[in-house]
């Protein structure tokens, strides 16, 4: 029996659903950090979008335009499945110098909030993250941000059809965004 209540933040809170989505994200973090990128990409649907907007420095009263609306701006990423395949195939080639030798990353996904569950089981969830990247001998970068996902129940697990990654940064303090979140 599932118990659905309102969580502390007023979000929908179903213990069993919360637990399964949380475990999904923990498994995702390990795939990224263990460099199993093809398995990671398989967590997404064929019609997927991996989207990362810019984040502008604006006055508090203009925060509505801090993150430009999708379709109006130049995001860091707005990749469909094919473009993501290009990224993964590139990294697998052994000559993608941005990640050769590969980075050591550690992704911590947390603060899960399930915002909406649709009748067909589609879940809208957001998570916060911290990610540390260590590359080459001494290069490091620390990313933080949040992700907003649309997930679908597929064959006993979940597939992401739409991911928005918002970094807590204006000017990115890393030599390239050659890792995923």
């Amino acid at each position: 029996m599932t118990v659905t209540t309102k969580g502390a933040l007023g979000e929908l809170f179903d213990e069993s659903l919360y637990s399964t989505i949380n475990r999904f994200y923990i498994a995702e973090a390990w795939l990224l950090d263990e460099r199993k990128l093809r398995a990671w990409l398989d967590l997404f649907t064929e019609e997927m979008v991996y989207y990362m907007p810019r984040r502008k420095n604006v006055n508090r009263k203009e925060l509505a335009r801090e993150i430009p609306e999708r379709g109006t701006d130049l995001p860091f990423f707005e990749d469909n499945r094919k473009l993501m395949e290009v990224r993964i195939q590139r990294l697998e080639s052994g000559t993608a110098w941005a990640e050769e030798p590969p980075s050591r990353t550690r992704h911590l996904f947390g603060n899960l909030v399930i915002e909406k569950v649709e009748d067909d089981g589609t879940v809208h969830a957001k998570t916060a993250f911290i990610c540390h990247r260590s590359h080459g001998e001494t290069t490091t970068a620390l990313y933080s941000g949040y992700r907003v996902d649309i997930l679908h129940p597929v064959d006993g697990s979940w597939k992401i059809s739409d991911r928005t990654v918002v970094l807590d940064a204006n000017v990115i303090l890393d030599k390239n965004i050659a890792i995923f979140f």
């Binding site: 810019r54 130049l74 990115i172 890393d174 390239n176």
Partner: peptide, 10 residues
């Protein structure tokens, strides 16, 4: 013009 992306490189 669209953008820009801004990032710092060594």
């Amino acid at each position: 013009a669209f953008g820009p992306h801004k990032w710092v490189i060594p």
